[in-house]
Structure formats: C-alpha cells, structure tokens
C-alpha cells in the first residue's frame, strides 16, 4: 500500500457513527454508518443545524453538554445506562431484542486543527446488545435474589434470610433501645401426621400454616421457616403484651380449623414460644435460644399453647 491513505475508506466501514459538527453545531460530515441509519445522504444534511436533522435531541441539554467541550477542550460522554439513546436510530437486532431504538454510548470529543478547536466530533457506538444482555442479567439477578430468600415450599422467607433479618432487627432495636419480640412455633406431632397421612399431607399443612399466619402479620414483621416444621416471627417495635396477642392469634389460626386432605378432616396445632428483648440478650442468638426454651416448655406442658420464660413466667 502506498500513496495517500484515504481514511474515510476505513471510517466508512466502522460499525459506529462518526459525526463532525462545527462550533455552531452544523453538520460538517458523517460516516457511512450514520448515512445508512439516518437514511439520508451527506450532501443533503451538510451545513444543516444538528437539531434540524435530529429533532429528537434535547436541544438545551445538548448545547450545555457541548459547551463543556468547547470551553474546556475536554471530552464528555453520554452512556446508555443513564440515557438509553440520544439519536433515534434503528438497530440491527429489531427481531431478537425488545428495544425500539439503538442503545448508544456517545462521546463528544474536541476536534482541533493546528492546535485550535474548530469543531466537535461525536462518536456513536451501538450498544444494543450490551443493553439487552444487561437487562436480562438484571432480571435474572432479581429472580436469584428472591430465590435466595424464599423457602421453596411455603413461599415465606427461608432460614438464612430470616436469621439475617433477625440479626438486623436485633442490632437496630439495641441501637435505638426500641422493643423487639420473637415468636417461634412448632407444629405438634408433625412426624405422626407425616407417618399417618403421608408427606404430601404434611407439606399441605406446612403451606396452609404459612399462609394462615402470613395473613395475620404486619408488613414490618419478618416471618420465616426456621427448619422442618418450625417457624419464626420477628416482631419489631412490639412489647411482650403485643407479642402475646400475636402469638395467641397465631396459635388459634392454626388449631381452630382443620384442613381437608383426600376427603378427610385433619386437625393440627402448634406450640408457641415467645421472648422479648432485654438487656441480658447480648446477641440475637440469645433471643433465639430463650424463645426456643419457651417453645420447648410449651411442648412439655401439653402442646397447643404459648409459653414465655421471663417476667410473667406463664403458660396460657
């Protein structure tokens, strides 16, 4: 290869737009990419104000954006992540993506001749693919995050997320010296239920329990499956009296009405332990173990009842 190289032969094959403007924002030149995507010939747009050729541009914003290039001689950028596109151009994946216009990364660069700024070069990159995959990734991440928090069977929080939430509420209650109560309950004779009626029946009871209890709770309460047939409810801003009320409603909601499984009425109940945050609880695990002990006592006192260890020391 010899002689003078005509750079436009190269720039005309780029899959990016190159747009050259003078300082009054009139179009000086563009490459083939833009001619094709705008579907106009360079001769027809040469010398025209950019806003006449691209009426979709936010004029005031654009002028201010370009002002920094002209005054400071520095480049400036516009990413699809903040602004999906500046120029309304078609893209090459109209069938396999849901985006109407080409997603773009635009760069505004100072264009100098002999050390003097004479224009602005706008580079327009097609990032429709990136944008498409990024939104798919975001959607997937959202689903994963949800799956990571939710117990597959009962659709309430799983143990890991529930315990993290308890940890946060515990720290918050300590910091602001606010009330915090914890309820844990365990379905009575659950193993027998499984043995007598099968695991499908057991699963149904678990699902029904989660659903009945969920409907009793406030948005701020955190309800999760702690293990097998054991559940936990974190009650922020709730003292012992308030928590006892909730516990009683939970107990009643579970034992008051049976479920029907294969035509048979099946009754079930739960034993409930309750504890309220006090200065003896140094870690959230201390609160869990106190609640668990109360739950154990409720079991050993005959089941289908609520037990609190501290203060009242009573079983209802």
């Amino acid at each position: 290869m010899n002689g003078e190289i005509e750079l436009s032969q190269v720039t005309d094959q780029l899959n990016s737009g190159i747009l050259l403007l003078d300082l009054q924002l009139n179009i000086v030149s563009w490459n083939r990419f833009l001619a094709v995507h705008v579907n106009q010939k360079l001769e027809d747009v040469k010398g025209k104000l950019i806003f006449d050729v691209f009426p979709e541009l936010p004029q005031r914003w654009f002028e201010r954006k370009v002002a920094s290039v002209i005054q400071l001689g520095t480049p400036t950028y516009c990413s699809w992540e903040q602004r999906h596109h500046l120029f309304e151009l078609p893209h090459t994946r109209p069938i396999t993506t849901d985006s109407h216009f080409m997603a773009q990364n635009c760069s505004f660069l100072p264009y100098e001749q002999e050390g003097k700024l004479v224009g602005i070069c706008v580079l327009i990159e097609d990032v429709t693919d990136v944008c498409h995959y990024q939104s798919q990734l975001k959607e997937t991440m959202k689903q994963l995050e949800l799956a990571n928090r939710i117990d597959g069977l009962t659709r309430i929080y799983n143990r890991k997320y529930w315990e993290e939430a308890l940890g946060k509420e515990f720290a918050r209650a300590q910091r602001y010296t606010s009330e915090l109560s914890l309820i844990m309950f365990d379905l009575d004779h659950f193993k027998k239920l499984n043995d007598n009626y099968g695991h499908q029946c057991g699963d149904l009871v678990l699902i029904e329990t989660a659903s009945r209890v969920s409907s009793l709770l406030r948005d701020a309460d955190v309800f999760g499956r702690y293990g097998g047939e054991e559940f936990g409810i974190v009650l922020p801003q709730t003292d012992q009296i308030g928590a006892l009320e909730v516990a009683e409603r939970v107990r009643a909601a579970i034992s008051n009405s049976p479920i029907i499984f294969e035509g048979k009425k099946i009754s079930f109940s739960a034993s409930v332990g309750l504890a309220t945050l006090n200065s003896e609880h140094k870690r959230y695990e201390d609160l869990i173990s106190e609640t668990d002990s109360a739950l154990y006592r409720a079991k050993s006192s005959g089941r289908d009842q609520i037990c609190i260890l501290q203060k009242f020391n009573k079983c209802s």
Binding site: P58, R60, W61, K65, S68, L72, T74, P75, T76, Y77, C78, S79, E81, Q82, R83
Partner: peptide, 17 residues
C-alpha cells in the same frame, strides 16, 4: 433535564479531564 446519575457522571468527567 437529566438524572442525578447523569449529573454525577457529567461533573466527574469535567473535573477529571
């Protein structure tokens, strides 16, 4: 005219460059 994110990016680019 523009989001906070875009403002952050704009001012950053101006200061840096």
């Amino acid at each position: 005219e523009l989001s906070v994110e875009e403002q952050l990016i704009d001012i950053s680019s101006i200061l840096t460059t």
